[in-house]
């Protein structure tokens, strides 16, 4: 554990945010968890081998190990990844954001592979994504078809799977988010990086491991121009604290002022 901040709320979900050498969104993610959502959260060293105390572990954005060779290709060998695998097998939540998604794909915890953006350039901009599966721990505070507005910032975000795998993902409803226009249509021009089938986020078969290229931690406060990212964090909070409530008779999850899911204005 590198740093720990305890939540103020009665009900708490313990989050861990993994810090690889070269991660650069770990403090942004921690800020949302602790300062915005008032949850207990720790930064976890990439050398940690025990994650048993955590309900949800987040692999944040950045350039783990410089993204040398290929994004996420070195990070998957970090000691912490064995513990992440165990946590995933245990049914706890493992969530990869941007570079974290790339690491989960490289580690085989999520299907597919990441290619360079179709435009061969880094792209940082706001995009729209459509929720295509609301029955995951990360999206159940939204509803299928909802359009969220979130920033992306990546160079290797073109998601790829083989046609067979794609059919399997569709069939098992593992495609959680798709890039779309403001009206929810997944058109080619609304696809910022050439991802196959406009995929922006997928989960594993068990639905407890989730990766997405957009940055929900960058849109969880009105001052930053949008709050749609909060919906994903709040989904995790209510789901996990319900589980706590079921096991130890804790109170209902604290009501959070959820913002409407679509078209939150800004900029």
């Amino acid at each position: 554990m590198i740093e720990s901040r305890d939540g103020l709320a009665g009900v708490s979900v313990r989050f861990g945010v993994v810090v690889f050498p070269g991660s650069n969104c770990e403090r942004d993610t921690l800020h949302v968890l602790t300062d915005v959502l008032r949850q207990p959260a720790d930064l976890i060293s990439h050398e940690s081998t025990d994650l048993s105390g955590y309900d949800c572990v987040i692999l944040p954005g950045g350039f783990a190990h410089g993204d040398y060779l290929r994004a996420g290709a070195i990070a998957r060998f970090s000691p912490v990844m064995r513990a992440v695998e165990r946590l995933a097998a245990d049914g706890r939540l493992v969530w990869g954001i941007c570079n974290g998604f790339q690491v989960l794909v490289e580690a085989g915890l999520l299907p597919g592979a990441m290619l360079q953006n179709a435009g061969l350039r880094f792209v940082c901009r706001w995009v729209h994504v459509r929720v295509d599966a609301d029955d995951t721990p990360y999206t159940h505070s939204t509803s299928s078809g909802a359009v969220l507005r979130m920033p992306i910032a990546h160079h290797e975000g073109s998601y790829f799977v083989s046609p067979d795998q794609l059919a399997r993902l569709e069939q098992r409803r593992q495609i959680v988010l798709r890039y779309c226009d403001a009206d929810g249509a997944a058109t080619p021009s609304a696809n910022p990086n050439g991802s196959i089938s406009s995929i922006a986020g997928v989960c594993n078969e068990a639905r407890n491991v989730f990766g997405l290229m957009p940055h929900p931690e960058r849109c969880a406060e009105p001052i930053l121009g949008g709050v749609d990212g909060r919906l994903l964090f709040e989904s995790v909070l209510s789901r996990t604290s319900e589980r706590h409530a079921a096991t130890d008779g804790d109170s209902r999850p604290r009501a959070l002022s959820a913002a409407p899911g679509t078209g939150v204005a800004g900029g």
Binding site: C124, R125, E217
Partner: peptide, 9 residues
Amino acid sequence: EQYDHMVQT
């Protein structure tokens, strides 16, 4: 757009 202008929130 080629620069990450949002990191550090």
